[in-house]
Amino acid sequence: MTDISSLILQGLAAVLVLSVLGLIATVVVTAVRDRIRTARRERLSAVLLDICDGEDLPAPRSTRDAETIADLAVRLATSLKGSDREALSAWLQRSGFPGRARAWMRRRNPASRLRGVALVTTINGPRSGRALVEMLADPHRRVRAGAARGLGITGAGSDIPALFSAVAAGRIPAGLAAMSVLRIFPTSGGQLESGFSSRDPSVRRIAAEIAGRLELADARPRLERLLGDSDATVVSAALAALVRIDDPEALTALRRERDRLADDPTRREFERTISRLEALEPVG
């Protein structure tokens, strides 16, 4: 009995001492690691600023340096536009970073794939859009969200359908897609066509919201067709968008749809929209 208990106690004491040593080691190791990382960042951030100034420096040789530069560039680029940013992305393209980004996007670790997505977004080269559209099908939610965000930054109107269909396929939330499409800044209702005709009501809803927010006047006929939508949230979004677009032409369609409705909250919503637009209609 005594033998066993002293054995257990000694074992426990040893584990405790080890855990304290482990804690101290953790603190020391992380402090040293931080110092090394900070020194590397210091050195490479100077390089990065030279690049923004338009200097042409050789590509980094070590993988670790390349990774750090990529991280720093992604971070800095979120605050920059214009010539600094162009100089940065031109240098990244020349220095083999598109290849690194592609390799990262194929890694098993989802955080590494998102790192690839972020780098592709920052490089913003000729093939960035296509790479990001592919990443909308990534198995990890957060990587897909990153790809949608990247498309918002780099994207052209031609990428909008991909965002809408990612929502319809349940790959990204509608709200996130709306943020990205708005960021792309479509200039005509035609660019939202795939959204208006989507089978997913949440896609039709965000298409209407974006048309309203950007006051795309040529989207009016499409919005009028959504007034008869089977989904109430789509109808509300279309009504709100028509108010923002502010075109009394919409009154004919609004009155026609209203007359088909019973006296319910939707009808009252129509009434409100109509009276707001009537206030704008030229008298006589």
Partner: peptide, 8 residues
Amino acid sequence: VKPFSSTE
């Protein structure tokens, strides 16, 4: 507003 251009 950031993102900004240093030229601007």
